[in-house]
Simulated scan of single mutants.
Amino acid sequence: MAMVGLFWVTADAVYVGSPPAADGGCVRLTAAGLDAVGPDDSRSWSWEELRSAVVADVPVEGSSGRAAKLLGSVAAAAVGAFLGEGPRAMVLRLETRHGPVEVTVHAAAAGGYGADEAALSQDLLARFVAGTADPGVVAAWGREHASNGTPKTAERAALLRSWAQG
């Protein structure tokens, strides 16, 4: 499994935010479209049915140093576990043929996402909707590389840029 921007990539699937929660909830990207899977219901939209897709409430990491970020992530995770809180919720706002829809997704980055990666991810998601980028390219990368873990920051940004180019 690997986190690249706002996407969680496994050998089997590509998710917006985190992989499936304990209740099975997740948002999965496929070549055909977007699947929102929940404990009580599931919904799917083809790329052609979507007018836009934007992730709101993305936690962005601060400008503090690497050690502070790591300690902050560990502390936040510990406090969250103590309080029974899960990962931070984000909102995937979809504009469909039939109107707006909001779907909750969870952040996979405990300390927040880098601003550049978040912006590149939003751009890539918009390109999936526009049909100018192929989520199958991300899935193919996952089958080949996700078992190596999350790439370093510069490589993640380069991957997002290359995926956006098709």
Rank of each mutant, 00 (worst) to 15 (best):
G86Y: 06
T132Y: 12
F7C: 06
A31Y: 04
V14Q: 02
D116N: 09
L83I: 06
A53W: 00
A133I: 03
A157T: 09
E61M: 12
K152V: 11
T132I: 06
V16L: 13
L6G: 05
K152P: 05
R93K: 15
G86F: 05
G38S: 11
W8I: 00
D41V: 02
A2S: 11
N148M: 15
A21V: 03
A89S: 13
S162Y: 05
V4A: 08
A130M: 08
R93W: 05
L120K: 01
A109S: 14
A56P: 02
V105D: 00
V91W: 00
S147I: 07
A133G: 04
A164T: 10
R93C: 10
A68P: 00
M3Q: 15
Q165R: 13
T96F: 04
G80M: 02
M90I: 12
G166W: 06
G136H: 10
S162L: 11
Q165W: 08
D57Q: 14
P135A: 08
L71V: 06
W8E: 08
S46M: 01
F7I: 03
V129N: 09
R93F: 02
S46I: 04
G131C: 07
G131R: 07
L125C: 06
D123N: 15
A67G: 05
K152L: 15
T10P: 08
M3R: 09
A158R: 14
M90W: 05
W163I: 01
M1A: 07
W163S: 00
F128G: 02
T30R: 09
V103R: 06
P39F: 03
G24Q: 09
C26F: 00
D116Q: 15
Q122H: 11
K152C: 09
L120F: 08
G72E: 05
F7R: 03
R51F: 04
L94I: 03
G33Y: 07
G86H: 08
E85K: 12
E117Q: 12
G72K: 02
L6I: 02
H98W: 10
T150K: 14
R156K: 13
G86S: 07
D123V: 15
A2I: 04
E61A: 15
L50R: 00
A75R: 14
Q122D: 10
W45C: 01
L70F: 09
A157I: 08
G80I: 01
E144V: 14
S63A: 15
